[in-house]
Design a protein around this nucleic acid. Structure first.
Lengths: 165, 165
DNA sequence: GCAGCTGCGAAATATTATTGCGCAGCAGAT
DNA sequence: ATCTGCTGCGCAATAATATTTCGCAGCTGC
């Protein structure tokens, strides 16, 4: 909550943990150039102040049996705030919907969906998404193959710039 | 590489680590119902066999100064494999492009981009993406607000199904 | 120049990770 | 059915790491 400013060491910590979230604290401390205790304190502060929201293992979807990834463009009938919120809330309930972003331009929302197989997705699409309250149109695009899937933000471009604290 | 089959405990481990990648091994062991040593051995196996690709801290983009998130639909002139690969390789080089998926349907690729500000993105768009080799059309949609952004796959729906090992 | 604040780092302690080893369960061969 | 080899568990010991405690140095405002 409070306004905390990040110094270069904090940014380095964030960059390192985004890249490898299970790095030990001693290794992290070594990389950012301070000793372990203050490093751990910084990490805790970053967690508590919300700069770090959590840690996640990156799991191979394919081998796990999630073969299908789909982007769905959704148009609504009403764009009133209540209705937008309602749709967003609905999306949060659907496990197959991993991401839901409100867009400008033609479509109202873009959804990233993941499913074990096409049948499962089609069932979801017809029985739930298209059938949902206020949904006017749904246009889906199947992911043929993934070329890049990096989590988080490109810290590298910050380093390239002049650092204005 | 080798074909390893996952038992329910392995799946539980994956689910737990996807949800909290920094959980201690003892806590993880407690949750999946085995003792720490075999639990750690399983995690190592999952890592080495590629089921777990890595661990990442989820960093708050906003507070970090990445205000802009954009989806870009890209159409190419040529869809020959060489040209597709070339474009994918190019995307991997661009830090602003976090994700690149090849789609079926109208557009060839969808890109998820993140930038510190609109200016940075516009510069990238006009000078790099649109200007790139083989790129025929680019249609961008700015993310107004995010409603959901879950990493990984929905393990919950697996649990709902009958488990066929 | 002297409080008061902030953040570092050494050392001590608590937790956790990791290794070594023996045991139980299961499958195939005798 | 019993033996044998394989797999995976868990206990116990050890190594590594996390976490706490504390004193010190630098900076700020008076």
């Amino acid at each position: 909550m409070p306004t905390i400013k990040l110094d270069p060491i904090d940014r380095k910590i964030l960059a390192e943990l985004q890249n490898d979230g299970r790095m030990t604290n001693v290794e992290l401390a070594k990389r950012v150039g301070i000793s372990a205790p203050p490093c751990l304190r910084r990490v805790r502060t970053l967690e508590e102040s919300g700069f770090i929201r959590g840690y996640h293992a990156e799991v191979d979807e394919r081998v796990l049996g999630f073969e299908v990834k789909v982007f769905a463009m959704v148009g609504l009938h009403s764009q009133a705030e209540v209705d937008l919120s309602a749709f967003e809330a609905q999306c949060r309930e659907w496990p197959l919907v991993r991401e839901c972003h409100m867009l400008n331009g033609e479509t109202d929302f873009i959804l990233k969906c993941v499913a074990p197989d096409l049948t499962t997705f089609q069932t979801f699409l017809t029985n739930h998404l298209t059938a949902a309250e206020n949904v006017a149109s749904v246009k889906t695009s199947l992911v043929i193959r993934g070329a890049k899937d990096e989590p988080g933000v490109p810290f590298s471009i910050l380093e390239a710039r002049s650092v204005d604290d």
